[in-house]
Design a binder for these strands. Structure first.
Lengths: 230, 230
DNA sequence: GCAAAAGTGTTGTACTTACACCCATGG
DNA sequence: CCATGGGTGTAAGTACAACACTTTTGC
């Protein structure tokens, strides 16, 4: 126990819950698990865990992300703290939610199986325990804001992506169709992407060019006072 | 103690810190206090306190706001949770920050004096304890977003306000000048304000009309698919 | 009567939206 | 050869930015 100047105040359990998002099949997906402990055991739940003594909130979230995905350096952002008195029927727990963007191209499903986890289409979510559905809603609202003001959408891909896939992802995030030419215009006028030589032939006969997001171009873009906008 | 299914996990102290903002003299102000306890006793600090057993995060924040301002029903929004391991040198404390908008027209300074509190110009802030300066920055970023997408700016006023004052406030929040005619155009085209008969003669000889924000008009505005934008 | 702040419209520019056809290729 | 998805430009409309003068009144 760390020495404390504050010995006489109530202490609380703190949980960290992760909204792990991925993109596959033109749809957003959320990694869910069957809750492993009582109460609400076996109900659908976000990936979560209790915070431990010598870790920060971010470290706790990263630990959970690594446990369920096997990946490190995942893009992640805090959604907020949830502190209603009776939010967790198992006891008084304050929970801090994070959302995370995970490339699903070659997702290792062995960990997911081990933890009774499953990717669910964001539009077909089951009822989740406690206030987890609310956390998901809040995360999506925040994600939409972030995606439209910062280049975070590229974190849904391992590295390369095609413009048709990027547009499908954008439409999945905002749940609205988007004009193809206007979408491409926005991206090409910002000039932050590098087109590669080869094409993705999986989703069409003609094939779509692969692109990379170029962080150097983005730094320069920002340095000259411009702002990303999608 | 609430019965708990989670008996074996570490518990933490949770603090709530409030970024209490007000508008006076064409400038944003922040209510600060001299920290009353060790460590860092007498240093400048946000208004805060420890969360107690049977209250939610929001209730804890409202309690702090009431203690230092004497007001209830203050507009308030969560900024986020701060959980670095060594953020508080007095012990392991996770803090949840809220910002609040307080009308300063007839602010009761007796409570502030009692608690060694003082309104400071947001542009002349001293160094604050721990990560409180960071919390203020994060709160301002969030406030700017909220002000430009929802009609929260009116919470800085008791009730009535003049357009010149509203514009001064807007400029103080965004720290940039704004064209007078364009600003008024935006407001008048949304048609959410009611002009009153009388004028504020304090800040000019001619006097500026008072206005009220009309929540009924706003409901209708939203119902018809429009979105507030400043 | 003058200083000081309040109030008021128009025009050019930039951005956003809508829209249709040709291309490349695997089967 | 044809079905499927990939790629491309232009024109109209809308929103935003820039700009200067008149009005009111306390002193």
């Amino acid at each position: 126990m760390i020495p404390s100047y504050y010995p006489n105040n109530t202490r609380f359990l703190i949980a960290v819950d992760c909204i792990i998002l991925g993109f596959r099949n033109k749809e957003l997906h959320l990694l869910l698990t069957r809750r492993p402990v009582e109460p609400m055991k076996h109900e659908w739940s976000l990936m979560g865990g209790f915070m431990e003594e010598n870790e920060s909130l971010n470290m706790a979230a990263e630990k959970i992300l690594y446990r369920y995905t096997g990946q490190k350096d995942i893009y992640m952002e805090q959604v907020g703290a949830y502190g209603a008195v009776d939010r967790d029927t198992g006891g008084r727990v304050i929970s801090v939610a994070f959302y995370a963007l995970v490339p699903m191209e070659q997702f290792d499903t062995s960990l997911a199986r081990e933890y009774d986890a499953r990717w669910m289409n964001i539009n077909e979510l089951p009822h989740l325990v406690f206030d987890h559905n609310q956390m998901v809603q809040d995360a999506l609202t925040l994600l939409r804001y972030k995606v439209s003001t910062e280049p975070v959408i590229f974190n849904f891909f391992e590295e390369r992506f095609t413009l048709p896939a990027l547009q499908d992802l954008y439409e999945a995030i905002f749940q609205m169709p988007m004009d193809k030419r206007n979408f491409r215009k926005k991206l090409t006028t910002m000039n932050l992407l590098d087109r590669l030589e080869d094409k993705d032939k999986k989703s069409s006969k003609r094939g779509a060019y692969f692109y990379l997001f170029n962080p150097d171009k983005y730094s320069e873009f920002i340095r000259t006072g411009k702002r990303f906008s999608l």
